[in-house]
């Protein structure tokens, strides 16, 4: 059974300006499943709705973000939860941090600047573990063990966040996010704003945790190299929709959607010295999305049908789903 089951999720940002309501259709009818123990990657350009999708499936919904329709079901070992139907304060809060955890984007500022790091760990443990048969010393031993396992120094626990380097802060944040052995980890651009050496460290750290704790991981980044390195399956998002989803090797070797092909064509390859090209044009505004296939204004192979009808995400071969009429025709 799948661990996460997302069905027809629509998450819009609603704003009102001069009496007119604007809807930013950041996530517009997305369905996918994530299996237990896998690393599921979501890739796409800036502003394609990746981060919003993460917020929506982890139940972090605050105005102006609204969920219009859809379901997000978690199948934990002992129970199934539909996170969108839970109450924010009583139930969702209890799930976040212990069953679902976040490795955030821009860990530069995610730790409370006036609290020592060990206090942040203590806060998280206090929030989720029952107070009985638990002492401060035990808690700190648990933290110490976890840090040892991740190869981090215990000394940093006594520091304030501003006293650490960016890479260190990111690693500490990862340690914080995983201390309670969550079933599912959402990683939202965990390597952005880090240099490649630190990026490598972070990727290895995530791999290590995943191996030890056997969690399910959803990885969101625009960096295809990270995806290739880390993920089992990969979904490509474009303008609020998933346009292609497949096993990571399959996707890199046989991309079917024109957008995916363009993305991969823009990457440098060993031994290939020809000039790389990028997709023409810019991504569409999510307030006024183009009718039909959202990619058609930039697609070299767009037909009349693409301008009118919206292609469904269909399985063209086992485990490979594509939303394009070209594929539908060839089947």
């Amino acid at each position: 059974m799948s661990m996460i089951d997302v069905k027809e999720l629509k998450a819009y940002y609603t704003t009102e300006k001069y009496g007119r309501i604007y809807r930013v259709r950041a996530v517009d009818g997305v369905s996918f499943q994530v299996h237990k123990n896998e690393i599921y990657g979501i890739a796409g350009e800036s502003g394609c709705g990746k981060s919003t999708l993460l917020k929506a499936i982890s139940g972090l919904i605050k105005p102006p973000l609204e969920i219009l329709e859809g379901e997000v079901i978690y199948n934990f070992d002992d129970q199934s939860l539909n996170i969108l139907s839970l109450q924010e304060d009583k139930q969702r809060r209890k799930v976040r941090g212990i069953r679902l955890s976040h490795i955030p984007q821009g860990s530069m500022s995610v730790l409370n600047p006036v609290r020592r790091i060990r206090k942040s760990f203590q806060d998280l443990i206090d929030a989720h573990l029952k107070l009985e048969n638990r002492t401060h010393l035990n808690d700190m031993n648990m933290v110490k063990k976890h840090l040892d396992a991740l190869g981090l120094e215990w000394n940093v626990m006594h520091s304030f966040p501003h006293q650490l380097s960016g890479g260190m802060r990111q690693r500490i944040t990862i340690a914080l996010a995983t201390i309670l052995k969550p079933d599912i980890i959402f990683a939202d651009e965990p390597t952005t704003a880090l240099d490649v050496v630190v990026q490598r460290g972070v990727v290895q750290l995530i791999k290590k945790i995943k191996k030890e704790q056997q969690n399910t991981l959803i990885m969101v980044t625009h960096d295809l190299a990270i995806h290739a390195n880390l993920c089992d399956r990969l979904a490509i998002m474009y303008a609020g929709k998933i346009v292609e989803e497949a096993d990571v090797n399959l996707l890199f070797n046989q991309p079917k959607h024109p957008y995916t092909q363009m993305l991969l064509d823009s990457l440098p390859k060993l031994g290939d010295k020809s000039t790389r090209t990028s997709a023409p044009g810019t991504p569409p505004s999510l307030i006024n999305v183009p009718p039909g296939c959202r990619f058609h204004p930039r697609c070299p192979e767009a037909t009349e049908r693409c301008r009118r009808e919206i292609p469904e995400l269909v399985e063209v071969e086992k485990g490979h789903r594509v939303a394009c009429f070209l594929e539908e025709g060839s089947k």
């Binding site: 809060r93 955890s101 955030p104 500022s109 600047p113």
Partner: peptide
């Protein structure tokens, strides 16, 4: 601020 949003994401109690 990010640290407040992240505290929410980690499910810390509202009072805290």
């Amino acid at each position: 601020e990010d640290y407040v949003v992240y505290a929410e994401a980690l499910g810390l109690p509202k009072i805290k």
